[in-house]
Amino acid sequence: MLKLIKTLSVAALLTVVSIAGAQAAGGGIELKSATWKHEGLFGTYDRAAAQRGLQVYQEVCAGCHSLRHVAFRTLADLGFSEAEIKALAKEATFVGGPDDDGEMFDRPGQPSDKFPSPFANEKAARASNGGAFPPDLSLIVKARGGFENYLYSLLIGYDDAPEGFDLPEGMNYNTFFSGHKIAMPAPLSEDGVEYSDGTPATVDQMAKDVTVFLAWTAEPKLEHRKNMGMKVILFLLLMSGLFYAVKRKIWAELH
């Protein structure tokens, strides 16, 4: 048994190293990292940060980036009240219908609607953004190696191009973007939004807040998952102990 555990842990370690190696490959630039409250075994989303992050998304990102997997009603998880959600949804306009004459019409959003997309389709988005396609942000945190830290680094990573760097027209220099040439201009600027809770809207603060919000949109069930995991694992430990005792008992009768 002991030997088995030893061998297994060595094998696990080797595999972890080889897989982790596979994942690390390709990156190369060291990302800026921040502490995220939702990390760790008991991590939960920082509600205040996520709420500020929603404001940043709406005032800064939503002009170009969609959030098509997220429904307004789910904002209740971040501590928004039903009335706030209704009001928020109402600001958006959706195409409804057809009515009795077969015509489509505009209708205000409802909590069951998902966030509206700024462009009708990818072609329209590219046409308005100099050929670049602003990706949907619902899953962006899970869809990039480096996860929260990558998004955070990218948002604060705008800089002047170093001497001799060939930056094409319409491109911007970003320390953390692969190849450093990014079509998106620096989205955040000092006091770009006015936080209702009085938090000073520094670029760093806004980058962190919107990252927390987008971490939530990418993995809305994180808290439920970790909570359940703790209970399940404790239960399994108890079960293992009991099964081991039974195993010992039964095998003892053999010898």
Binding site: F235, L236, L238, M239, L242, F243, A245, V246, K249
Partner: peptide
């Protein structure tokens, strides 16, 4: 003691399965 152990282990297993 043995019977108690078997019942406890069986019970925990059954509860786990139900969940």
């Amino acid at each position: 003691r043995r019977d108690f152990l078997y019942i406890a282990a069986g019970g925990v297993g059954a509860v786990g399965t139900a969940f």
